[in-house]
């Protein structure tokens, strides 16, 4: 499916409760860079766990969708790929999950054109978030392909708005590795931005944020089952229906700051392991 503008009530309530995705009202007077710089002088709880990272507007849908769809339970092992300083990892940890965030941008504190001051993901900042919220999310500053993690051990994996920033081969590489890390019967929740300025919707081959990856190619043959997601709304699937998506645009959550929407899908590893 593609995220809709009209969010279910439980999504709206969840966003309101956690201050997702921009941080709570108390944080609004400060820009993200100032919140991080003044971390020791502000009240992180008043600001909420989502206040410390610049975020795409499609996260209004993505975070509550991921939370409610993944059905995390205390004690579950959760892998969050490319989570930066986003609040969801800390929320899941506060609810008793054992969370690992694998993000190579933590090596240099930079992401794309965003400077360290704006992006903010450094091991130091991440630890400050852990300390502030009383949790112990593990940060691995590597690609998930390079991270030394035990295979078949994660009950849930998340990869939210990451793949569109990569080329098709890198995206596939991440998915293959996560498929191996997932435990039998584990769920892998993925969102992928769909850019309206990039082909097949627009005239550009790619934009400065990335491109429209072929979701079907990326997820096929991994030994995972598509258990959630409408193939008519997932680019690359034979059922993908461009005209239908265009017709649906008024109902879709399109970011006001960049013309994109959010494709969402869930892959499940069969209980007997990958086939």
């Amino acid at each position: 499916m593609i995220g809709r503008k009209a969010l279910p009530a439980e999504y709206r309530e969840w966003n309101a409760y956690w201050g997702a995705p921009y941080g709570r009202e108390e944080a609004a007077a400060l820009e993200v860079a100032d919140r991080l710089e003044g971390f020791d002088r502000v009240d992180p709880h008043a600001f909420g766990p989502f206040a410390f990272q610049l975020t795409s507007d499609t996260r209004v849908f993505e975070y509550p969708w991921a939370y409610h769809t993944m059905e995390a339970k205390p004690g579950m092992r959760v892998l969050d790929v490319g989570a930066g300083l986003s609040g969801l990892q800390f929320v899941l940890a506060m609810e008793g999950c054992e969370v690992t965030n694998v993000d190579p941008s933590a090596k240099n504190g930079e992401w794309g054109s965003l400077s360290a001051a704006m992006w903010g993901l450094t091991p130091h900042n991440h630890q400050r978030m852990n300390d502030a919220f009383g949790v112990d999310v593990r940060l691995i500053p590597e690609t998930v392909q390079d991270a030394d993690l035990p295979e078949g051990t994660f009950d849930r994996a998340l990869c939210l708005s990451v793949l569109e920033h990569l080329d098709q081969a890198d995206a596939r590489g991440i998915l293959e590795r996560v498929a191996a890390l997932l435990a039998p019967d584990g769920l892998f929740l993925v969102t992928v931005d769909l850019f309206f300025d990039v082909k097949p919707f627009g005239v550009l081959p790619a934009n400065s944020y990335g491109g429209n990856i072929d979701v079907h190619q990326a997820v096929s043959g991994l030994g995972l089952e598509l258990v959630y997601g409408d193939p008519r709304e997932l680019l690359g699937f034979p059922e993908f229906d461009l005209e239908r998506v265009v017709e649906l645009v008024p109902d879709l959550l399109v970011s006001p700051r960049y013309p994109c929407a959010s494709q969402a899908l869930v892959l499940r590893k069969p209980a007997g392991g990958a086939r």
């Binding site: 309206f196 300025d197 919707f201 627009g202 005239v203 550009l204 265009v246 399109v254 006001p256 013309p259």
Partner: peptide, 15 residues
């Protein structure tokens, strides 16, 4: 704007 008609498929943006 490259995502809006006549170049893209969307009629207009939010602003």
């Amino acid at each position: 704007l490259l995502h809006l008609r006549p170049l893209g498929v969307l009629p207009e943006g939010p602003a």
